[in-house]
């Protein structure tokens, strides 16, 4: 699997660290109800299809990336710097 880092170009998966669902970018308000925080911290979908995840280019440029990929076909559909993406909506 190769991920095309917006800065470094196409790189091997070994250079990247997987963090989890890009919902991490959509942090609830500090005073949001407990159910919102529970959802944010613990409840994840497990889609057969497109998923948006956070990856860290740890052995490369050190950028956090939002990677959209398909868990069925294994296609990597898009890669963007996480910096500047608000609310995880991309």
């Amino acid at each position: 699997m190769r991920i095309t880092c917006p800065l470094c170009g196409a790189r091997d998966r070994r250079e990247f660290h997987y963090m989890g669902d890009a919902v991490y970018l959509d942090r609830p308000d500090p005073v949001a109800p407990a159910v919102a925080w529970d959802d944010y911290l613990h409840l994840r979908d497990n889609p057969a299809g497109e998923t948006r995840d956070l990856w860290f280019h740890e052995a490369g440029c050190g950028a956090w990336l939002v990677v959209t990929r398909n868990t069925v076909s294994h296609d990597v559909l898009s890669v963007a710097l996480a910096d500047g993406i608000r609310g995880g909506a991309g």
Binding site: R11, R14, A59, G60, C61, G62
Partner: peptide, 10 residues
Amino acid sequence: TARTLLGQMN
């Protein structure tokens, strides 16, 4: 130039 892996080393 590139930041990458050499074996297991950055």
